[in-house]
Design a protein around this nucleic acid. Structure first.
Lengths: 392, 392
DNA sequence: ACCGTCCCTGAATCATTGG
DNA sequence: TCCAATGATTCAGGGACGG
């Protein structure tokens, strides 16, 4: 919502105390080099990351972090991104300001990247330190899939330990197993495998040290709710703000460089995301097709059609020399609407048959009335299961 | 070759200067707790990890690291194992003694482990700091396999940069690609995925904080040649020495605790190294679902179950306090077989209902005979479409 | 009598090996 | 292939203690 240009120390002072839910901070890494990168348009952006001493650098951070703490709500938290060069010094400053007992996690961002053949191991990670302002910080656990080595069916049964801490299965009065409560998945780990931005990806706008949106999305998801306020005092090319916008959070961005501000504003206007295959998984959130619809089409091996009201995809094979269109019932559509939309599309495209996937029941009494011979209505698996279970 | 019991500060002083090639050090992590673990035979080994202050702890390390540096050869290096609790303090001490410019890598040991109910992210990594004594340290690059997303062209075809510094593939006079010399692989990354020593592993000797042999082997491989000298001043249950012995390196181990020394000696006599399926075949070998099956499970929002013949997944919600298993008909299975397998699983797990997804028609005449009230058979979309179209 | 803090115990967790 | 077992870490709850 707000993008400010200038020294973040001064500008942070203008922000109200206890007003921010999440700060993501990606300060210079103390590389002692000038960071630069040229974009496709041959415009070169750069910033200075050279310091008189590490003390100088720590002081620089210290002053800003004090303001950061002030503007955070009591339920707020801060994520500070650094790399191996100075992560230990940065963490000392954080311990100093937020307190060692407010340290929550060291997040390892792990990526694969080809790099020059230096002696030693390839540097394939960066560190993100997660501190909260108080013990009562906001945290939304993300649950992930179980490892494929886990025997989930085993875990389904309740167990207890006897006095020797031996495990036995719990049995009911009939001697049958007692099943455990619903499983929700494994809480997210502190090591995140997120691909480094492919240099060719469209997402890249030509600003040094740009971070992938997925990384920021994940941070925002675990630390905020919708409409919360996200602050990035070194916003650079604005990835944090873009991710905030995508996830419906409010945002404040600050950067010293005029170019940074203008890139950020541009990006926010036309949100671009890389379509790199590696990243696809997590970006379902703002594609035209919802993930659910995509799954249905994938299951049918269908060719996906974007931006068509009547047709979502086509079956892979023609039938009687005509393609067969698929229409998925949308959330706000009655089945009749869906069928009509498909019928219209069939007529205008001069097709023969079509398929509608019914995804929810609506209240119409005479659903079958509009059914026509050239359209097959198939219920989503979930609907069939629901119907069956309701009779049990 | 040598195992010494006593205070490592005193014992380090008895070791000749510039005589050691590699030091692996796994000091207490500053957890401020007593580390203990009771083994199968109810023998409990433990050590104290409580300190008056962080300064105390740093001083303790400082004194020992000074001796460590002295005993290292000029070509030698040190690997210091720690975790998130005090890694920043430890690195400061290391910077202080070895010099910040002798810092080579921060190794992240990443593992999966049983989870818990922590607020925040699961801690699934530990840090190992790699410093060398001089710039001329010994380093043997390990090459790993290319990741599956790597474009093979990049590996096999020679490239060059044209005048605009664009990369193009080199072509011979006939316009064919010139294949490059055999590539040897990707140099080892600084993030290591090595399984955590499982509670059930035979390799476990009942000593707390025991590290997997594999982890030590990797360190020893990159930093030493055969017959070099490896020193572990906090050798605990002796994993470092075992790995050294396996790899034909000479070793010196020191520990304060008498039990540690005796376990170590025992382990060195009969070396037990876990060689599980996971280590042999990799995690991918456990992922046995086809893409089609995964799509079906995803469409149902199901929890995936690997390694079970009768059950492929569970619906996300319980019904009447029982989970509902899903079985997908396999290529070579009749529908009856699938139903029977699921029925057996339902019986043995004391479940109520189940769902079978029929993926192909088989030639059985009386499919319906085995249908039972507690199982819902749903046809795959494709089957329904096929059937419908065949009547057209 | 009441509160907050500290410590101890108990329950819950799941990735993995072993039988 | 299937079934059984295990533990580092976490939180919750209860009891002890001191103010």
């Amino acid at each position: 919502m707000t993008i400010l240009q200038g020294d973040n120390l001064e500008l942070l002072k203008t922000i109200k105390s206890s007003s921010v839910d999440l700060i993501y901070m990606d300060p210079p890494f103390f590389t002692q080099k000038t960071q630069k990168l040229s974009s496709k348009d041959n415009i070169t952006y750069s910033f200075e990351d050279t310091w008189a001493s590490i003390e100088d650098y720590k002081c620089f951070l210290h002053n800003r972090l004090i303001e950061c703490k002030r503007v955070l709500k009591d339920s707020g938290s801060i994520f500070v991104h650094c790399d191996k060069t100075a992560n230990h010094h940065i963490r000392l400053v954080l311990d100093d300001i937020f307190g060692a007992d407010m340290f929550q996690n060291e997040i390892i961002w792990n990526y694969k990247r080809w790099s020059n053949s230096k002696k030693g191991l390839l540097n394939n990670h960066q560190n993100i330190y997660f501190y909260s302002k108080t013990k009562k910080f906001k945290f939304k656990t993300i649950y992930t899939e179980y490892s494929s080595t886990t025997n989930l069916d085993q875990i389904l049964v309740e167990r207890r330990r006897d006095s020797n801490s031996k495990t036995t299965y719990k049995l009911d009065d009939n001697g049958d197993y007692i099943l455990s409560k619903e499983k929700i998945g494994v809480p997210l780990s502190d090591v995140w495998n997120i691909p480094f931005l492919n240099p060719k990806a469209r997402e890249r706008v030509g600003y040094p040290t740009q971070k992938p949106i997925l990384l920021l999305e994940q941070i925002i998801r675990i630390a905020t709710d919708e409409n919360d306020v996200v602050l990035d005092p070194f916003c650079g090319s604005g990835t944090t703000l873009v991710a905030s916008k995508i996830l419906n959070r409010n945002y404040i961005g600050i950067d010293l460089a005029e170019e940074a501000i203008s890139i950020t504003k541009q990006r926010l206007e036309t949100i671009i995301k890389t379509s790199s295959n590696l990243l696809k998984k997590g970006i379902a959130a703002y594609k035209t097709k919802t993930e659910e619809e995509e799954n249905i089409l994938k299951l049918l091996n269908a060719k996906v059609v974007q931006r068509n009201k009547g047709i979502d995809g086509f079956l892979p094979q023609h039938f009687q020399d005509k393609p067969i269109p698929i229409k998925i019932q949308k959330k706000n559509e009655d089945l009749n609407d869906s069928i009509l939309l498909l019928q219209n599309a069939i007529k205008s495209k001069n097709l023969k048959f079509g398929i509608v996937i019914k995804t929810h029941t609506d209240n119409l009494l005479f659903e079958s009335e509009v059914l026509s011979k050239n359209i097959l209505v198939i219920s989503h698996f979930e609907l069939m299961i629901e119907k069956w279970l309701n009779n049990k």
